[in-house]
Amino acid sequence: MTDLQMTGPLVQVDGLTRRFDISKPWLNRVLEREGKQFLTANADVSFQINKGETFALVGESGSGKSTIAKMIVGLLAPSAGHIRFDGEEMDFASGADMRALRRRFQMIFQDPFASLNPRWRVRDIVAEPIVTFGLLKGPEITREVDRLLDVVGLSAADAAKFPHEFSGGQRQRIAIARALSSKPEFIVCDEPTSALDVSVQAQILNLMRDLQDEFGLTYLLISHDLSVVRHMANRIGVLYLGRLVEVADAKRLFVEPQHPYTRMLLDAVPDLALSGRRRKPVLGEIPNPIDPPSGCAFNPRCPLAQDICKAQTPMPRATPTGEAACHFAGQVGEMA
C-alpha cells in the first residue's frame, strides 16, 4: 500500500438517514383518526473515518449516535444514504458478498453483562466469529482463543469459565477478545466503558489504545463522555438531535469549538482539576425528537439564535478546525 492509501478513508458515510415508524397499530390509527408518526433518529449524516484513526461521535440522549453505529455494522438498515467500507458499498440486503466485508469490521457493546451469552463458555463466545467465518478448525481454534485471551489480559484457564464468574471489566475484555478474533480492521465501540467503574474504564481505554497500536485498528468510538472522547479520539463528530453539528480535529475541538452546542457541552463538563472553571448550567433541555424545532434544531437553546435559525436548517460549512452546521459558525467566541 502506498502512503496515500494508508491515510485514505476506510469508512465513508454519505447522507445517512434513519426514520423509525412509531405509529400506533393500524386499528388504533383508523379509530383515532391519526396519521402515521415517524421519529427521525438521524438526518443527512455524512462523515468519513480514515485508516488507523479513532473517530468519535459524541452526543446526549436522543442524538442518534447509537443508531449510526448500528447502521454501519448492519444491525439496522438506513432509510436513505450510503455507507462505503474501503470503497465498497455496504449493502446488507444482498447477503452473499457481504461475508468477506463483514469479517473486516466488528463491534464492542456498552453492557458487558448483556453482550455475552450467559449460557456459553468464554471459549465458545470468543470463538464465535472464527467459527461463523470458518477461519480456523479444531485445535487451532482453541490455540487462537488462548492467544486472544492473553492479548486482552486474561489467562487461557479462563476459557472454560462462564461469563458470570467475571467482573464487569473482565467481561469487557472477553468482548474485546471476541471482536478481535476475526482479525478486523475496523471496530465500532458503542459506549465501551459507560457501564464500568472509572478505575476499570482506565484499564479498558488503555487496552483499546494498545490494541490499536499493535494491530493498526481503526475505531469508531460512540460516547456521551467528552473526557473519554478527548482522551481517545483523533477526530470528533458532535451530534445533536440526529444531525452532525460539528466535525473537528479532537485537540482543537476542545480549545476552539465552532458550534454553540459544542461550546455548551464543553462548559457543562465538571471541573475535576479544580481550576476554578465554573461549570455553566445550560439553558433548557433536549427537545422531543418526534417533534423537533424548525430550522436549526438547537435554536431554542442557542444564545446566538436569530430569525434565520428558525427558518432554515444550516448546512455544514468549512471552519478552521473542520466543519460545522451553524449559520453563525465561528462566532461562538463571542458567546457570553
Binding site: S199, A202, L205, S227, F254
Partner: peptide, 24 residues
C-alpha cells in the same frame, strides 16, 4: 490516587491513563 489518575479530564495531556490493576 489511582482513582484520580484513572479519570480522563479535559485538561490532561498524557496518552495513557493511570490504571489500578484488578478490580474491587
Amino acid at each position: 490516587a489511582g482513582l484520580m489518575g484513572a479519570i480522563p479530564t479535559l485538561e490532561q495531556t498524557s496518552d495513557r491513563l493511570v490504571q489500578i490493576p484488578g478490580a474491587m
